[in-house]
């Protein structure tokens, strides 16, 4: 368990980090918490020639909220997210998912920015980020752009980030009216990643019907994906148990050609579990919307 040789940099400013990345581009990897990257390097599934450790770059782990929504520094750890009052108030699904990631050692090191940039097909954060309609703030030496969650996850372990971009923040927009979010996960007993995880964000209008809903599924296919059929069934209806069940049972409907099947669960079972987890997440989100 030893990595290939690599050069290590620990820049102390964003500009320095961005300059290094601009210089080394594809041969470099950004090191955040390291809990996805270092294991695959030790297994020699990845062999970056350069690591740029951004843990010394200031102001990357701040969490704040205002009327526009929640802003989370990319280096905020799962532990910080699970404990943050701002997160719990504005986006309880994030706190709920962060508290379920792996074990306490991982939660103390692993970061939301690292999770999204790595885009593990069974990661918890990607689904939550999708359901909450978040944006990734991607910065280079030259400028900043925001990438909407719907455009962020491209394929297995592949995101819309360009080689010179560093994730600096995650933005979660404020929701209007009564709204709630939740995450439900059926865990792989070995890795503790999701066999099927579902994040849901629901807003209830003044007439008691669902005015907005975003539901996203992880663990079931090659990347975290929105369950748009589920959302469509929910929107405009009163979120009764039977509506939620009918909607939930479509959670993996769009994933049928891309189901993950391995020694832990067949695609069929994952697809089924997505429905159960969707029901639990949506029910809880609706309750939180009050």
């Amino acid at each position: 368990m030893v990595t290939s040789n690599f050069e290590y940099f620990a820049p102390e400013s964003f500009d320095e980090a961005a300059a290094l990345l601009a210089k080394y581009r594809d041969t470099a990897k950004i090191l955040a918490g390291g809990h996805s990257l270092l294991p695959i390097m030790k297994l020699r599934l990845a062999a970056p020639e350069v690591l740029i450790d951004i843990s010394k770059v200031p102001e990357l782990s701040e969490i704040s909220s205002n009327g526009d929504g929640l802003t989370i520094g990319a280096m905020a750890t799962y532990y910080e997210l699970s404990q943050s009052a701002a997160v719990q108030a504005a986006a309880p699904a994030i706190a709920e998912a962060a508290g379920q990631v792996a074990d306490v050692q991982v939660r103390n090191r692993g970061t939301i920015g690292g999770s999204l940039a790595h885009s593990d097909p069974a990661g918890d954060m990607p689904a939550v980020f999708l359901a909450l309609n978040g944006k990734v703030v991607a910065r280079t030496r030259r400028g900043t752009r925001e990438i909407a969650s719907d455009r962020f996850f491209v394929d297995l372990l592949t995101t819309a980030l360009r080689p010179t971009e560093i994730v600096t923040q995650i933005k979660i927009p404020a929701t209007s009216g009564k709204s709630g979010s939740a995450y439900a996960k059926f865990e792989n007993k070995a890795s503790h990643y999701a066999i099927a995880g579902v994040a849901a964000s629901v807003s209830i209008g003044s007439d008691g019907t669902v005015s907005a809903a975003r539901v996203a599924v992880t663990g079931v296919s090659s990347k975290s994906t929105r369950a748009k059929r589920t959302e469509r069934i929910l929107i405009g209806k009163e979120p009764t148990a039977s509506v939620i069940r009918r909607a939930s049972d479509r959670a993996a409907a769009e994933l049928q050609d891309d189901l993950t099947s391995d020694i832990h669960a067949s695609g069929e079972y994952r697809s089924y579990l997505a429905g159960v987890m969707a029901e639990r997440a949506i029910t809880s989100a609706v309750e939180r919307a009050g």
């Binding site: 074990d103 070995a190 890795s191 832990h264």
Partner: peptide
Amino acid sequence: MLDYAIPV
């Protein structure tokens, strides 16, 4: 251990 489930 990612694929072999040790009790926790």
